[in-house]
Amino acid sequence: MIYTCTMNPAIDLFTEFEQFAPFIVNRSRQEDYQANGKAINISFILKAMGIESTATGFLGGFTGDFIEQELAKKSIAVDFIHVEGITRINTFIRSGEIEYKAVNKGPEISETAQNKLLEKLQTLTEEDMLFVSGSLPKGIKDEVFIDIAKLSQQKGFQLIWDISSESLINCLPYHPFLIKPNDEELAHLLGVPALKTDKELIGGARELMDRGAGKVLVSLGEKGALYVDENESLFTTAPIGKVVNTACAGDTMLAVFVGKLIQGENLEEALICATAAGSSTAFSAGLTDLSDLQKLKEQIKLRRVVM
C-alpha cells in the first residue's frame, strides 16, 4: 500500500487580479480553493494515474474538514490525526507577471498527536511505500524525521522524502528509497552556494547517495530535471509554456515519476512523463489533470551523462 504523510496541510487559495496595490480594496477576477499539502498533492496525482493511496498527517477545524471532503470526492482513503486548532490557509496572488505567496504556519501539534501518527506508521510493512513531504507545523521538531527514518529501516517500508529540512542529511544513514530536493535545496544540503554544471549537480546527488540515499530526483525548474542512481545520470529539458502556479509542480513531478515506475515504465519514460507533468501543473491554476501530458512530452529531450 502507498501512504502519503502531510504534517502541515493547507487550503491553498489561488487568486488573480488585474492589479494588486497596497492600502486599497483589490477585487479578484478569479479565485480557486484547493485542498493542498505536498503529500496530499501526491495522493491526488496518483489517483489521477489510477494508483490508490492513503493520505495521513494532521488536520484541524473547518479547513481540515474541507480537505477531507475534497479527498473523499476523489475516493482517496484518509487516515488523519485530528487536532485542535485550524488547518492553515495559504494565499497565492497573481497580478500580471508577479506572484505573491502568503504561507501560514498552521496549528500547534501536541506531543500526544505526534505519538499517534508515529503509532500509525509503525504498522507499515515491507510491502508499503511512504511519501513524507512538506514543512512541519508548530510544536513538532525536526527530530520527527529521524524517528520516521528509523521506522522505515526497522519495518522495511520504502521511504520517499521531499522535505527542505537540514535534518534530511541525518535521515540518509537509514537508507531512504528516494529523495527529491530541488537544485537550491541540494546545494544547501551540501553547504555550497550553488550547483550549476552537470558535473556539480550529479556530484552533489552522488554525495547524498554516498551518505545513504538510494536514488535522487532533482527538480530544476524551467531547466527540467535530473535523476541519479547507482547506474544512471539522466537529465531532461522542460517544455515551454506560461507559468501560472509554481506551488505544486515538484509534488506532481515526484508523484508521476514514482507512479510510472510502479506501473512498469522504464526510467527514461518515467522521467520524461514526470517532467511533463510538473510543467503541466506549473502552467495551470492548480494541479494538472494530466490531459496535456502527451503534448508536453513531445517538447522534452532526455540525455544520459556518463561520468
Rank of each mutant, 00 (worst) to 15 (best):
T6R: 15
N8K: 11
N8A: 13
Q19M: 05
P22H: 00
I24C: 01
I24E: 04
D32Y: 15
K38S: 04
I40V: 06
F44H: 07
M49H: 05
G50W: 06
T54Y: 01
L59R: 00
D65N: 04
F66I: 04
E70Q: 08
K73Y: 01
H82R: 14
E84T: 06
I89E: 07
E97N: 15
Y100T: 14
S110N: 00
L118H: 04
K120M: 00
Q122W: 04
T125Q: 10
L130C: 10
K141Y: 11
I148Q: 09
A149F: 11
I160F: 11
I163K: 15
E166M: 13
L168D: 13
P173E: 14
P173M: 12
P173H: 12
P176T: 09
A187G: 12
A187L: 10
L190V: 07
G191L: 10
K199P: 00
K199W: 05
G204L: 10
L208V: 11
M209Y: 15
G212R: 15
G212Q: 12
V218E: 01
A225E: 01
Y227E: 06
V228G: 10
F235I: 10
P239I: 07
A249K: 09
V256Y: 02
F257R: 02
L261R: 06
Q263F: 00
Q263D: 00
G264T: 03
N266Y: 02
F283S: 06
S284K: 06
G286R: 12
T288G: 05
T288K: 11
K297R: 03
